[in-house]
């Protein structure tokens, strides 16, 4: 299970970084979103993988998963949305002002 989880994580990060290395704003935003998923999962899994042990106190349950990374990741997801929204708007504004959606604000100079 751990191996599968790590593989997913690695693929997410690799795809995210590949997209972030592209030259146009939109792929970069998508890459950032993918990387955001990966980072959230990375944080989350530091509390280890537990099946059917949600951290909701009940008398029938003797063990619980670690609630702390979950609380951290929950706010991280919301903040991640705010950040993606911000970058999106920045990209829109930049393309409106500069007339290009290239990350450098203009077409790449062939040198």
């Amino acid at each position: 299970m751990e191996l599968l989880f790590c593989a997913c994580l690695g693929v997410l990060i690799a795809c995210g970084i590949y997209l972030m290395l592209r030259g146009r704003t939109f792929p970069v935003i998508m890459g950032l979103t993918l990387l955001g998923y990966a980072v959230n999962m990375f944080l989350f899994v530091s509390g280890r993988l537990k099946t059917n042990l949600p951290a909701v106190i009940s008398p029938d349950q003797a063990q619980y998963t670690d609630p702390l990374p979950q609380a951290l990741v929950l706010t991280a997801i919301v903040i991640g949305f705010a950040m993606v929204a911000f970058v999106v708007v920045l990209a829109l504004r930049a393309s409106g002002e500069l007339g290009s959606d290239h990350v450098d604000g203009g077409e790449e100079k062939k040198s």
Binding site: E2, C6, L9, G10, A14, L21, R22
Partner: peptide, 28 residues
């Protein structure tokens, strides 16, 4: 870019494996 991103992703996955295969202590 593919080499870079595969290196980064592979590194992160390996790191995560190293974390997950070790016992851990929590303040939970």
């Amino acid at each position: 870019d593919i080499i870079l991103s595969v290196a980064a992703g592979g590194g992160a996955a390996a790191l995560m494996m190293a974390v997950l295969t070790r016992p851990y202590d929590t303040i939970a």
